[in-house]
Simulated assay, not measured.
Amino acid sequence: MQKILVARPIFPDVVERLRQYFDVDWNDGPALPLDELARRLADKDGALTAGDRIDSAIFAAAPRLRAVANMAVGYNNFDIDAFNAAGVVATNTPDVLNEATADFGWALMMAAARRVTESEHWLRAGKWGAWRYDGFLSADVYGSTLGIIGMGRIGQALARRARGFSMRVVYHNRSRVAPQIEAELGAQYLSKDDLLRQADHVVLVVPYSVQSHHTIGAAELALMKPTATLTNIARGGIVDDAALADALHERRIAAAGLDVFEGEPSVHPRLLTAPSVVLTPHIASATESTRRAMANLAADNLIAALGMGPRAGQPPNPINPEVLGRARS
């Protein structure tokens, strides 16, 4: 049997599915350090990962490796140039997490806008003595302007939710979406700077790349309204966390909701003490049905990429389809 590594804890029944096809080495514990990951992959034909860095150093240590399935839609942990050079198939898990992630982005935006976390901490600290007319005054969501940076599947799901709140929707993307999609969503394309100036609530849903690194930094934060909120459900590194912490401490924007961070699981210490910020540990897709769908889709991708199952040789979600059928060099 071909050998694979399941590099992270996942649902045991999904591991059992994989064992029908492969000799499975399952790391059901903490994330493996890079040297241990390379050692465990040395004799493997495939791997199922969830954020683990896979690059040319891994391929040099694992000469049999032919396919790696990422249990995520984002794949900035994959060096795709190295995958292509080595002839290794890379896959991801798009679509199955769109609605759960959009739900969570909406919840995070609402919590930031209405100061939910800040007021809860105040209550738990025993500071609530009496009702006040000015207690935790916050920003309106209904009837406000939503700015979406990244109008892909999740961005479009967010825009659909905005209709129920009678929001004006503006968006920025690398390229405009089709006119019929703009019409369906009631969304207006703006330059990034114009969006930041006009939006009451900015939500980030762009994939991470060298080009999107620090899409929001000090200069961009300076364009935002002092009453505006910023929500990041994209990837750490899209926002300059140090610049955001400064803006929050100095009350240059009203609030932020963050599910992802630069260098996570580490969090910039000034974000931990910033006012009006909601912080969650990268859980936007964390409903049971969604995470199960992600795990099963990753398994489907790996089974097919390694030439097994009903879709042998044709994984559902190849990132680099040009290497399919090409022997690893």
Rank of each mutant, 00 (worst) to 15 (best):
G257M: 01
D45R: 09
R163S: 12
F78Y: 13
D45V: 01
A255P: 06
R251K: 15
S212F: 12
A125N: 12
A218R: 14
F83L: 15
A112E: 00
V323K: 05
T93Q: 05
Q198T: 02
A85S: 12
R197M: 04
V277W: 03
S266R: 13
K192R: 14
A187L: 03
G257P: 01
R114E: 00
L158N: 11
A247S: 11
A130S: 07
L297F: 11
M167D: 00
L41G: 02
F83I: 15
P63K: 05
S119R: 12
R160W: 07
G155F: 15
F78E: 09
L195Q: 00
V14W: 00
D13Y: 13
L302A: 06
H201T: 01
D193T: 04
R8W: 05
D103V: 02
V68L: 10
L248A: 02
L258K: 12
I4V: 13
L195Y: 00
A86M: 13
I154G: 14
T215R: 11
L146S: 05
A242T: 10
H172C: 00
P275S: 04
P179E: 02
P265D: 13
R124A: 10
A102Y: 14
V116G: 08
D45T: 01
E322S: 15
A234E: 14
L196I: 02
L190G: 03
L18P: 08
V68Q: 05
A100Y: 12
A256T: 08
D240V: 01
H214Q: 08
V267K: 04
Y208G: 05
M109D: 06
G74C: 04
A90N: 12
G309T: 05
T215F: 08
G217N: 06
I58Y: 11
D79L: 00
G105H: 13
G186Q: 12
A199N: 01
S119Y: 07
D140Y: 07
S166F: 02
I154L: 15
N98Y: 05
L306T: 04
Q198L: 03
N98P: 04
A162S: 10
E182L: 01
L18H: 06
Q198K: 01
A199V: 04
M224R: 02
A305E: 13
G325F: 04
D200E: 08
D241G: 03
V6F: 07
G257L: 01
A245M: 09
I253D: 03
S289G: 07
T227I: 07
D200T: 03
A219R: 10
V260K: 11
A57R: 15
M294Y: 03
Q156M: 06
D200Q: 06
M224Q: 00
R176T: 09
R114K: 04
D28R: 03
E220S: 06
S285R: 10
A242C: 04
Q188H: 09
L123Y: 14
I253E: 01
S285I: 05
R19S: 14
M151L: 11
A42P: 06
T229A: 04
P94H: 08
D246L: 12
D134N: 15
A67E: 09
I303V: 14
A183W: 00
G51S: 07
G135A: 01
